[in-house]
Design a protein around this nucleic acid. Structure first.
Lengths: 339, 339
DNA sequence: TGGATTAGGTTTAGCGCTATACCTCGATAG
DNA sequence: CTATCGAGGTATAGCGCTAAACCTAATCCA
């Protein structure tokens, strides 16, 4: 069936080790003539080394696990933002010659066996909630080298990358304050003392402090979906009559809110300005085009992979997450407050 | 380091084979008492079987490769439609206890070695162009069991799933014809005598035949991107003065065209009706909401996986692609032709 | 009562590769 | 002229698991 090292060795009239050395570029120990001969025979025979055999012998697999939250078994799919990062990570890993094992995680506990069995060289955790990161430690995954993207741990010692959520939200709020808004709402999912949303809330608040303005107590708790955003938008005016602007912690949520507002007869940005977070392609496709905080996801992904590679190949790793800069992209959903 | 079968066997005072049998649920050959004891010791020791060793011994890896086109090395990411399917496939494979090796393919040739080496149990080709499917055959991938999603081969003998592109386009055109439109444009990428776009064009034409109407020769060749769509939309009125409706082969393209038209002062749907294809979430987020042909991607993915599983585990496989039904979703971008 | 079966194991022989130690021979140095 | 060394290999011994053949005592049926 499969062409093995042994066959190549026999055909070439050398030992298996010599073929192995040639295949692995361990050329110091083989004469040029032999290299050429072995190479030729291997090509003729269509020899391809067996990854299982190799990783059994070397204990290295050149395989990296990418874990993404899979919510429920019924959750149809993963968010566009997450998926985009998956694609970027695959591309980066490929450059380094590693392969990607993609795994959705519904329940952190069930992952252990599956992943340990593959003796992964490393793993990337993508977008897990704070409490889940702990469960998915080296112990569970079996890989020593783990980086987390978009995850926070209570002590902030998780290695990985994340966007500068604090700065982003601060930028968003500053933008709205600069436009003269004061009654600015914060809309996002429930949060505790640590995590992405908490950071964004802190950044949001900081902008008020920076401007020497007292932050009004306008907060709405809402899940990060279009549907819930729209629901909220529909009733928002009634609940916060004085509000003239809002910051939503995700674009998809912001778009939902904008649509809800519009349906309720409230114009964006004339009556209410809206800023989102993420800078999905979507922002350019909706009306009005969404002003948002742009995350450099390509950099987030490539930095995470390069940290992982340094960790695997050189044993070097930063002790804290690397923060990726964000920027504000002004589009059409924000305008100066009405006089 | 790693706990091995041998250690479990020694601790339990049985042979390795007995432990192996217990671990693999091969319980017929082991007494209940022994099963219990081995199980307990294995748990205590935290034993996890090595996938490499197992696949080396059995020649089965419980690993399925998922190949997606990676365009250029610079292409930032994969289309949302493709990515959504990736997520769905992962979920399906997980149900069957298989793992997913995700691999972007920039150049079909370079894939061979990487994939053969993993001795994949099967492979799924996602959204490749017709000519690429041939290059990525069993020979290249090394897996006997291959299914293709959204791919056409010249002879239509590729196993896999695809949406009913012909019927979808026919539905779209019929919808426009029913609304009284006659000057209907077909906008899509260049196509040859076989492939998704060709099917859609044929379905589009069929609707005219069904209605006994001669199809006007209105065709625009344009790549499937928002930007190119917008460009086209900007100049469309000048180029086809009589046109009152158009069918675009992808939502993202349709949205671009709508925006171009709008910018050029042409109203959708009052002046021009637009129908897309795919039914991305996006359709609900744009203004006007896009009427489109809905593909059941969840079914497309799950059917593909179940075909693959039947092929791997039972050796049964359909000889032709399975066609997934589509439906028309009427939203706001289509209206009766103006009197 | 004895040959055949069966339950419940064990032993053996690899799967395909690589790390490590070892060998051999010609060149080199003292 | 021998001791040493490096170039260019080879031989051995696993990595952790499983398929297949084999073993043994108890059971079974005619």
């Amino acid at each position: 069936m499969r062409v093995t090292l042994r066959e190549v060795a026999e055909q070439a009239g050398v030992s298996m080790m010599t073929v192995s050395n040639v295949m692995n570029g361990n050329r110091a120990r083989v004469s040029p003539g032999t290299i050429e001969k072995v190479q030729r025979i291997a090509d003729e025979l269509g020899y391809v080394p067996s990854a299982s055999a190799r990783s059994l012998a070397t204990k290295a697999s050149r395989l990296v696990g990418l874990l993404v939250p899979a919510a429920d078994e019924d959750s149809l799919m993963i968010s566009p933002h997450t998926m985009a990062i998956v694609g970027l990570i695959e591309r980066e890993l490929r450059k380094y010659g590693y392969h990607l094992l993609l795994r959705g995680v519904a329940h952190p506990d069930e992952v252990a066996e599956a992943l340990r069995s593959w003796s992964l060289d490393g793993a990337i955790l993508l977008g897990f909630l704070d409490e889940e990161v702990g469960k998915l430690t080296k112990k569970t995954i079996g890989a020593v080298h783990v980086v987390a993207i978009d995850s926070y741990s209570a002590n902030r010692l998780t290695t990985g990358t994340r966007s500068d959520d604090f700065a982003g939200a601060r930028l968003a709020a500053k933008h709205l304050l600069d436009l003269g808004h004061r009654q600015i709402l914060f809309a996002g999912p429930a949060f505790s003392g640590v995590g992405v949303v908490h950071e964004r809330f802190e950044g949001f608040s900081q902008a008020f402090a920076d401007a020497g303005v007292e932050r009004p107590d306008l907060v709405e708790t809402v899940n990060t979906t279009y549907a819930e955003g729209r629901e909220l938008g529909l009733t928002l005016a009634g609940r916060h009559p004085g509000m003239t602007a809002l910051f939503a912690t995700a674009d998809i949520l912001a778009v939902g809110i904008v649509h809800g507002l519009t349906e309720a007869g409230i114009r964006v940005p004339e009556d209410v300005s809206v800023v989102g977070f993420d800078d999905l392609d979507l922002c350019n496709y909706v009306t009005p085009k969404l002003t948002t905080v742009s995350q450099d996801i390509a950099r987030k992904a490539s930095t995470a992979v390069s940290i992982l590679m340094d960790s695997i190949e050189k044993g070097e790793r930063p002790k804290r997450p690397v923060t990726i800069d964000v920027s504000l992209v002004e589009r059409e959903s924000t305008a100066p407050v009405r006089a």
